[in-house]
Amino acid sequence: MIAPSDPRGVPESYAGFPVVTTASLYLPWYPDLRLSATSANSLHKLLADFAPDVVHLAAPVILGSKGVMAAAELGVPSVALYQTEVPRYAVQYGYPAAEPIFWRHLRKLHNMATINLAPSSYTRDQLIAHGFSRVDVWGRGVDTELFSPDKRDQALHDSWAPHGEVVVGFMGRLAPEKQVKDLRALTDLPGVRLVIIGDGPQRAELEADLPGAVFVGMKSGEELARCLASLDLFVHPGESETFCQAVQEAHASGLAAIAPRRGGPIDLIDPSHNGWLYPPGDLSAMRNQVADLVGDGFKRTIFGQTARKRVENRTWPRVCDQLLDYYCAAIDLGVRSPAKTG
């Protein structure tokens, strides 16, 4: 494993295998995100010394970009994961002119990989439209033991909603790309209590924008599972989700989910069965869908039960078996020349 260093600490090993760190720096506007500052030569030497059969590239933007080039130079097959819609992030962070530059950069890098994996059908089609080659879909697993309706804590729920409100929640990073501000459309909805699970650079701003919402901060492990299962309904307004693991974890927790009809949620939410999808940007539709499930407890329960059933087979072991198949396929295909793949 090769990862950027972090002053907060990085494990020296994982599952018995060493973790090698590279020099890193941070973005002034997002100090929690570390970017690798290592050289291409360093990556080339690390890979040459280890002599892998295949290289797994997790979101090749900075560190992964040097990794895919080193793999190609060494003739080692590679599997590249597209995980984050970085070009759209550039727009949301105020740099719209950078969007086409990012697309060109990412297309060049990914087309050097033997196989590219998108986390959803929407993202696969988007990448192909932007000229990415050899793209397939590899989704994400969910820990159905950790995230479970059995983790619901009614006392915690009632502490959030002492007057019997329906608890509508969001879980994720509090940053512009998650569009948590869109939840303002729900702040005056009768009988609703908003609960926000997570932290990030927009927290103070969101606390002012969402009066009456409960902010519980960042949670993990059992505490996160308990908080999530103690909600009544899950809403994720982000339109840049290539997969949206938060929706899948909400479903595993027995919750109906509502999200925009864009990106990963399209594969996860089946309208009228385990939640609703609304047209991106149509906050009136989102509000109406929330009101529908807030006002119909029976439908909300049935949607939640269906949601749980549909993720029970999406375990990490099953999903990782699929990834191993892609590694084998990449090895069979062999490395592709950058000059040929463009």
Results as ranks from 00 to 15, higher is better:
L323F: 13
D153Y: 00
P260G: 10
V294D: 01
R173V: 09
P237F: 07
L183E: 01
D332Q: 06
P100E: 01
D188P: 03
S5G: 15
P60H: 04
C244T: 06
D49Y: 08
D49K: 14
K340Q: 12
V195W: 06
G131A: 05
H273N: 07
D6H: 06
L283V: 11
I62W: 11
K299E: 13
P28F: 11
L210H: 03
F102R: 00
A80F: 00
R287F: 04
A285T: 14
F303M: 14
M171P: 02
D150K: 07
R140S: 15
G200D: 08
G297N: 04
I266E: 01
K45N: 12
A97R: 07
A40K: 11
V335F: 11
A225M: 04
S5H: 12
H273M: 13
P60T: 10
A58Q: 08
V142Y: 04
R261I: 12
G281S: 11
D296H: 09
G172H: 04
L146K: 08
P260F: 02
E207D: 07
G198K: 15
I115P: 03
A250K: 00
R104C: 10
Q83T: 15
E165P: 01
Y14P: 10
V19N: 03
A23S: 07
L27V: 15
L293T: 03
